[in-house]
Write a protein that binds this DNA or RNA. Structure first.
Lengths: 201, 201
DNA sequence: ACCTGAACACCGTTCAAGT
DNA sequence: ACCTGAACACCGTTCAAGT
């Protein structure tokens, strides 16, 4: 059945062919399926072919990380780019994305690899920073001072990462909980705005 | 040099000998060091000896998880048991524990294993629930309603887990940030208490 | 340039045999 | 009861040889 395993001799495999299939495997079957031998049988070649394109497994993982982070950065950029959208709605959309995205299993694997691979760590760090700034800005637009917004954004982003790694017997937040959460942040932002310092020059 | 590698024939190895050494390895050298072959050379036996005590690697990991969770549960119990301590101080101590505990690398490995091992998952879930309840109760005592306290506790605990898994290029919270955070929760709790519903019967 | 084929090291697992 | 020793499967890695 179609798609995998080149039954006929076709064009040589590009690096993208390898990373694309590896990312598919990671999403569909988890980190345990990302093995050179598995990739080779899927792509219909022998291992030597892999080592023609990549130094070793690590460099494959780095390539996966870069592809995935650039993809998700683009997605988040689309959201943040909707400056037209009210900050409250934008924040809500981001938070929901934090919760239900099925691609969290990918992130878990990446963070895992990041622990022993500086390249991957740097890629992830950049991606996290981007997310934090988007959230912080939305909260600022709700009326918090930059410092307050940074604290709240950090709390929210860290909680999102934690949720992804938890799976944890802890009650999974419902959509209504998300709404309460946003209310929580918004309500406080108003307090901050009302009693607030004037914005720093 | 002393400690590891029984140079002389001594008493047979108990299951605890194996799990204790494995936990040491996990804390000192990370998850990559927890290998049967490594354990065997450390303990001065051959692999068959391991398989006399354990079914396979999975069951060793389950044993590690149980040992570690029961240890940390006791530690947290000591904190929560200090009902004498003002809830604000208790909450602060717990949150600081969430941040600086060097044993986070262990938790990361356990959550990783939990993904493919139901036993480990159950052990972790129980540990998480215990933590959540302790935090929730402290926040309730600050004057929040149970529902509000649950939301805030969940946010805090998830953020702690996320922080442990992040390492993430995001700015690591300073102690002063923790204080701001506690203020944030406390301040809101007061708001909740002032405008609050009467506690449910 | 791109890939095969065979080899090797390392690790988990099994099992008959030893004490 | 507790462990050895040797075997096997699986996976990552290397490399000479093929087209």
């Amino acid at each position: 059945m179609g798609g995998t395993g080149r039954s006929v001799k076709s064009r040589p495999l590009s690096a993208e062919d390898w990373t694309a299939r590896a990312l598919e495997l990671l999403m569909d079957e988890g980190v345990g399926a990302v093995k050179i031998s598995r990739l080779c049988s899927d792509l219909g070649v022998t291992k030597g072919s892999f080592y023609w394109r990549f130094e070793d497994l690590e460099s494959l993982k780095e390539a996966i990380a870069e592809k995935w982070c650039s993809d998700s950065r683009r997605a988040l950029g689309n959201l943040a780019g909707l400056a037209a959208l009210a900050p409250l709605e934008r924040l809500r959309a981001m938070t929901l994305g934090l919760i239900d995205d099925r691609a969290w299993s990918v992130q878990r694997a990446l963070r895992d690899w990041a622990r022993t691979d500086e390249q991957v760590a740097a890629t992830i760090a950049q991606s996290d920073t981007f997310m934090l700034e988007a959230v912080q800005q939305a909260i600022e637009e709700l009326g918090s001072t930059p410092e307050r917004a940074r604290l709240r954004a950090g709390l929210l982003v860290y909680a999102g990462i934690g949720f992804a790694h938890g799976q944890s017997g802890l009650p999974k937040p419902e959509v209504s909980d998300i709404d309460d959460l946003i209310d929580f942040l918004a309500e406080d932002a108003e307090v901050g705005a009302r009693s607030g310092q004037p914005p720093a020059t």
